[in-house]
Design a binder for these strands. Structure first.
Lengths: 118, 118
DNA sequence: TCCTTAGTTCAAAAGTTATTGAACAATTGG
DNA sequence: CCAATTGTTCAATAACTTTTGAACTAAGGA
């Protein structure tokens, strides 16, 4: 059970920009960047939209080549395709994330911040 | 006769990304970047779309804060708001332009290249 | 096996964006 | 003044995107 992803050279600049031009998706990417390395499942983003709608937005991100979704049991673990994006469009993701981090208009994921203290 | 432009702090990341997520507009921005400093009028872009449609796309770019349009006689001279964009979203425009320059799928402006030789 | 959890798919509705042509406005040059 | 040039506006349509709920699949645990 693997989901379709474009390979690196198939990632299109206008499609990536278009996909990132949506506050919900930008918020997802910003959160993924803040948890880089940690694979997160879809329900982590339920603050942002309904389950159905998330499925739609996460599919857009995946089909554009921005994220990778790996099937693990009943979960889909979502990660940023940072290395691929950096290779294809050097500096783009960094500058988008840096700008997104400073954007107070973007919706937040996990406002309660329930982290397990060390 | 001046046209409305957002000021720098009003420029929104998702709006800029959304506006750049269109091949016609990305081609306009790429061309503007290649002629930086030289103000170009709208008809310079007639290769890309009809006059009416260009008016629409150029308004989108201007309203997003990506370009500036100055009225000079019957012309609107279009320039990239590079300094403003660099201030607001450091590195973003550079990486977008660098990626756009390498994108063979984007439509080209002025394929015939009628430059006045020195 | 049955129930729960995680997420998808589908079709419909709602909303937004892109494209067109015809009509318009403003400036400039003859 | 007249005509040409430059670009806008408007209304219509076409095309796409987003959002929704109901129905569904697939895996995992009791």
């Amino acid at each position: 059970m693997t989901l379709p992803h474009p390979n690196t050279d198939q990632i299109s600049l206008p499609i990536v920009l278009g996909v990132l031009g949506d506050p919900t998706r930008l918020a997802i990417v910003r959160y993924l960047a803040s948890k880089e390395g940690v694979p997160l499942n879809c329900s982590r983003f339920l603050d942002l939209a309904s389950k159905t709608n998330l499925s739609y937005h996460l599919a857009k991100l995946r089909e554009a080549g921005v994220t990778r979704a790996e099937v693990v049991g009943t979960n889909r673990m979502i990660t940023l395709r940072r290395a691929d994006l950096d290779a294809r469009f050097p500096g783009l993701l960094d500058s988008v994330i840096a700008a997104a981090v400073d954007d107070p208009a973007l919706p937040a994921v996990g406002g309660h911040d329930l982290e397990v203290p060390a």
